[in-house]
Simulated assay, not measured.
Amino acid sequence: MDTRRLRFLLELSRLGSMRAVADVLDTTTSTVSQQIAVLAKETGVPLLEPDGRRVRLTPAGRRLAEHAVTILAAVEAARVDLDPGAEPAGVVRVAGFGLAIRRSLLPVADLLASRHPEVRLVISEHEPGEALTALLADDIDLALTYDYELAPATAGPSVAASVLWTTPWGLGVPAGDAHRVRADGTLAVFRAFSHHDWIGNSRNNADEEVVRTLASMAGFAPRFTHRADSLELVADLIAAGGGVGLLPMDRPTRPDVTVVALAGPDVLMRAYTCVRRGRDAWPPLALVLDLLRHGWSRGSGRGGGAASGPVIRAVPGLRCPGSG
């Protein structure tokens, strides 16, 4: 069984179309079709079946693609072991939230293009739950997720997760209302805005869970009226009188919005790299993880928009609860 043909099959299982495989592997769709047809003859089972005008993998094809991950990873590992200077090669599929993509992944993509051109990234923006679902379905190789210390996430036993960085968050309020805070401490800040409307995240409940927890400790139930993924939109809603909401402390915002520090208890976001257990030995993925963990990052914020800020405190060895 030719490992080159296994790569064609694996990329088809990942990318979903022969044209996409041809683009990634710099060949033609007819070559992709021919190589997979030869692979089917070698294995003696149909690997593809019609799906409208396209094709999809048969159950046997999907099983072989799963084996291909292990086989190709073992081949790559053996090649690197015999030749430590060998260049990793392959397509790494990544899904993550906007902050991690802009701040940590895009600098890695730039570095790969200049120093490791045989390793390519396919990037999708997803909230943590969506990214983990895709990871468990083997639709991606790497998920960039986040949680808060006050709202820890559970990734599951089949996922290995490591903290990439942490960053403090505060409460975004209209600049003209910042004078309401007359005492130090998170609970005092929350009480000062207990009668305001609150802004949450539309696709992930971690922010609301943090707000509800702190509001309960402060003696009230928050009233959520708006929900948004983009930090720019959260700030715009705050400035327009739509309420108050969590925003990062280390990221510039609008001049008519003030981010009030929250301390005691602190509100810390934790960003994670998540992979399926045993997959991080695959050389292209191992390279990407190594670059991410060694601080190739820029910008800040949960959602859209580039920004700059201070170096974020690293927490070595910390893992998502439940992820081992």
Rank of each mutant, 00 (worst) to 15 (best):
L292I: 08
L268N: 10
V311A: 14
R270Q: 05
S297T: 15
R277T: 11
A286M: 02
V315R: 12
A307D: 15
S308F: 14
D290V: 00
D266A: 12
W282V: 07
G317A: 07
W296I: 14
G264H: 13
R270A: 03
A307S: 15
R293M: 09
A281Y: 04
D266H: 08
V267K: 07
L289H: 01
P284V: 13
A261Y: 05
A314E: 06
R302A: 14
C274W: 01
G305F: 08
G304K: 06
L292Q: 01
C274M: 04
T273M: 05
D280G: 01
G303E: 12
P310W: 09
G301E: 12
A261C: 04
W296D: 02
S297H: 13
L291G: 00
A281F: 02
G278K: 06
R298V: 11
A306C: 09
A306Q: 11
R277M: 03
G309W: 01
G317C: 03
V260M: 11
G304R: 12
R293L: 09
A314L: 14
L262V: 08
G309P: 00
M269S: 10
T273E: 08
I312W: 13
R302Q: 14
G299N: 13
V288L: 02
P316L: 07
A281K: 05
Y272T: 05
A271K: 02
A307F: 12
I312A: 11
V315W: 10
G304A: 07
R298H: 10
W296H: 13
C274E: 05
L262E: 09
G309D: 03
G303N: 04
W296A: 12
G309N: 06
S297E: 14
G305P: 08
I312E: 15
A307P: 10
H294C: 04
S300N: 10
G305C: 07
G303W: 06
L292S: 02
L289R: 15
R302F: 15
R277P: 01
I312Y: 10
G317R: 08
A306T: 11
L287K: 05
M269R: 15
A286Y: 01
V275I: 07
V311W: 08
L289K: 02
G264C: 11
V311Q: 11
A263K: 13
G299D: 14
L292M: 07
L262Y: 06
G303R: 10
R293Q: 10
P283I: 06
A263T: 14
G305N: 08
R270L: 05
R293V: 02
D290Y: 00
G295D: 12
I312Q: 13
P284T: 08
P283A: 04
R277Q: 11
L291K: 01
G264E: 15
S308G: 14
A281E: 06
A263M: 06
V267F: 06
V288G: 03
I312V: 14
V288N: 01
W282D: 13
G309E: 03
D266M: 04
H294N: 13
V260K: 08
A261D: 13
C274D: 13
V275M: 00
G317V: 03
V315Q: 07
P283W: 04
S300M: 11
R279G: 00
L262P: 06
H294F: 02
R277S: 03
L318W: 08
V260S: 09
V275H: 02
D290L: 03
L287S: 04
W296M: 12
R276A: 07
L287F: 05
R279K: 01
